[in-house]
Design a binder for these strands. Structure first.
Length: 669
RNA sequence: GGGCGCGUAGCUCAAACGGAUAGAGCAUCGGAUUUCUAAUCCGAGGGUUGCAGGUUCAAUUCCUGCCGCGCCUACCA
């Protein structure tokens, strides 16, 4: 609703500027006034125009306000401050339209979107950092789907890499386990925890003697080659750990559609197909001298920079036009002929856009409780399977440390002439989750003096240093359960457990989304376990409170929000909303109207944190209102219905926004 | 060295496109409920937005330099 009127306002302003001044502004900025008394939209454009029109901003604002005439849906425009134009909407009409619900986007870009997230090495338990990735990715998927887009969710599995090799080294060399013994272990409940410790031990073992790295090298070779005992063990382990990851994420209601694995990228020779195209297009150059002699290399970042003609002339002058300086070289194919991970990634991304000319085999791998199937790659798969890949846009939820590698893949696509695809390739970059020194100490890790002085300490799988995802979820549930037990002793244990789980998930998912992506989360257990203030449970509690009012009053809140017009007449809407005196009520309607606007903003900026803020603001407004205006004791029946309508809409928008964040509100709290 | 990012209240963070008095949460202190549940609300204190310049009617936001911190910069993945 908010968004619709904003567009209308911009259109009318643009028309007016053309008519009155013969001006065409490329962008007309619309803001939100700092306080609701000032209006609903603010336009600072008079300041911009002042110079062009050689008039003071206030004068221009006056002319616009006086000349623009009535705009449908708006009460008036008014001049404010040094030259702001503030617009007030017709509150009753606005509210009535908001109650009915939003018309979907008229113009929706066509084509499927692929979101890749999680991508946890299948060699150990998932930790808090992985949770941030998965929650961000899953929320973004929900945002896109709410906006009407078709989305495939992929979780890339590096099952042939060093990390898996290290755990195998642990099993075979440190623990001297047989395949049968490993198989038994892998069927144990938390096999990923076992691997967590073993991985740390293997890393330690390498540190003890560099010679031990030889063992890893051989294991790695066997895995990549496939068709041998080591590869079979690798498969066994990675599949078992992967299942654990899917279970962990399923606890948070995070699902995937397809799990492409590196083993298939190797065995189906994706790289060969990509290599041929890259060579043909001259994207890769063969180095015949220097430190990278014998390698196929790509320019690191020069391609992304627009070179000035002067720079090019300089290069011609030094006869160095084609040669990439060694510092700018990124090795794609090693001198022994093997391809590095960036190369494989290029091939994989060509597949994503349907540019490779090859496809995975597919088989069903995991069925979620709701019946949804998750597929996995295989060499020879089922004949009948969903069509993955070949999409119009991709989003890769990958931490900021890999931005350079991501850029190389994008540049490779561009260099191959696929600009369209490169433009629709988004590295959804986010910062890592680290631990506060206090939190690390509480978890029993020994810290150096240097570490204690740091603002945060990076999680390290190699050191076994970090907070495991399942442990965190368990702690949250335990903590919530204690509170629920105390508050609702009359409920059955399973009911209380269900509520505690909802609260725990709400707390965790909200926590992962309240920070902007570019901020390193200095994880603090106490803070994460908090259920007060700006948290998921605060928002959930707000929904519960609203629901309670309807229950006690004998109304169905969903019916109420579906049919506001059946409870509140247009005249009452007008009475109770218009005028300064009713700002407290109007604020709730206005804030509620912004959900779709916020969702658009989240997608455009790839920043789900805006939605968390929106939820918090709605909840805050509600709670203030809740204290100030008792509803059920209201004697004026019309006013009572209006107040109920108000909270029905707030509740609806809260539930809708929380759903996008993957959070549900419990029946009671 | 080069690249990317960060620096805002005691702590953790907001502030899309430069805009009105830089906002929250936590912590601290003081209050509120026999009311629709206090996982709540109200109030107080707390800021030279790292430093120095510049652009602009307007800078936390853009530009330059400096200081501090982090990440990337492997024929690892």
């Amino acid at each position: 609703m908010y968004r619709h009127l904003e567009h209308r306002l911009v259109d009318r302003i643009r028309d007016f500027l053309r008519r009155a001044y013969a001006l065409d502004l490329p962008r007309i900025v619309i803001e939100q006034p700092p306080r609701v008394e000032l209006g609903d939209y603010a336009l600072p454009l008079a300041f911009d125009l002042a110079k062009k029109l050689r008039k003071p901003p206030r004068k221009i604002a006056e002319e616009i306000v006086a000349g623009i005439g009535p705009i449908e849906g708006f009460e008036k425009l008014e001049l404010a401050g040094a030259g702001y134009i503030n617009a007030r909407v017709q509150r009753d009409q606005f509210a009535a339209a908001l109650a009915v619900g939003e018309a979907p986007h008229a113009t929706l870009p066509s084509g499927k979107i692929l979101v890749e997230h999680s991508s946890i090495n299948p060699n150990k338990a998932a930790h808090v950092g992985h949770l941030r990735n998965a929650v961000l990715g899953d929320t973004f998927v929900r945002l896109l789907r709410l906006a009407g887009r078709e989305v495939d969710v992929q979780n890339y599995i590096d099952n042939t890499g060093v990390q898996v090799a290290d755990v195998i080294v642990g099993f075979l060399n440190l623990e001297k386990k047989s395949r049968a013994e490993i198989e038994v272990l892998a069927s144990q409940p938390r096999f990923d925890y076992y691997c967590w410790d073993l991985y740390a031990r293997a890393s330690q073992w390498y540190a003890e003697d560099k010679q031990n790295l030889q063992v890893r090298h051989h294991v790695l070779q066997d895995i990549e080659e496939g068709g041998n005992e080591t590869a079979a063990i690798a498969d066994l382990i990675s599949i078992a750990v992967l299942r654990r990851h899917l279970e962990t994420m399923d606890r948070l209601d995070i699902e995937y559609d397809f799990l492409p694995r590196e083993s298939e990228i190797l065995h189906l020779h994706f790289w060969d197909a990509a290599f041929a195209k890259l060579k043909e297009a001259g994207v890769l150059t063969f180095e015949s001298e220097g430190k990278n002699k014998g390698c196929w290399v790509m320019r690191r970042d020069g391609a992304s920079r627009e070179e000035t003609s002067d720079e090019i002339l300089t290069k011609i002058g030094t006869q160095d036009l084609d040669r990439i300086s060694e510092d700018d070289q990124k090795v794609i194919v090693r001198s022994n002929g093997t391809v590095g991970y960036v190369g494989k990634d290029i091939a994989y991304h060509m597949w994503k856009f349907g540019l490779l000319g090859r496809d995975f085999g597919y088989r069903k791998f995991y069925r979620y409780p709701n019946g949804h199937d998750c597929w996995i790659s295989t060499t020879v798969g089922a004949l009948d399977h969903p069509h993955f890949g070949d999409v119009a846009e991709i989003y890769n939820v990958i931490d900021a440390r890999q931005s350079e590698a991501q850029n190389i893949v994008i540049e490779a696509l561009r260099a191959l002439g696929h600009n369209e695809q490169a433009d629709h390739y988004t590295h959804f970059s986010y910062e890592m989750v680290a631990l506060t020194p206090r939190c690390a100490a509480e978890l029993g890790y020994q810290l150096s003096e240097e570490d204690k002085a740091r603002p945060y300490i990076e999680v390290s799988g190699r050191k076994g240093f970090g907070v495991k995802a399942d442990d965190l979820i368990d702690s949250l549930i335990t903590s919530a359960k204690k509170e629920v037990n105390a508050r609702h002793p009359q409920l059955s244990d399973s009911e209380r457990a269900g509520i505690a789980t909802q609260i725990a998930i709400g707390a965790l998912r909200y926590f992962m989304l309240k920070f902007t992506k570019s901020s390193v989360i200095a994880f603090d257990l106490r803070e994460a376990l908090s259920f007060e203030g700006e948290t998921g449970p605060y928002a959930q509690y707000t929904v519960v409170r609203a629901t309670n009012i309807f229950r006690k009053g004998g109304f169905d809140p969903d019916n109420f929000s579906r049919d506001v017009a059946g409870y509140v007449s247009p005249g009452d809407l007008l009475n109770f909303l218009t005028g300064e005196a009713n700002n407290d009520f109007w604020e709730l309607w206005l804030a509620s109207s912004k959900t779709s606007y916020i969702i658009d903003q989240c997608i455009a900026t790839t920043e789900p944190a805006h939605l968390a803020k929106h939820v918090f603001q709605l909840a805050q407004l509600f709670n203030t209102f809740y204290h100030r205006y008792p509803i059920l004791t209201e004697i004026d029946e019309k006013r009572k219905m209006f107040l109920l309508a108000t909270i029905a809409i707030v509740r609806r928008e809260l539930i809708r926004s929380l759903a996008v964040m993957g959070i549900t509100a419990p029946p009671v709290m």
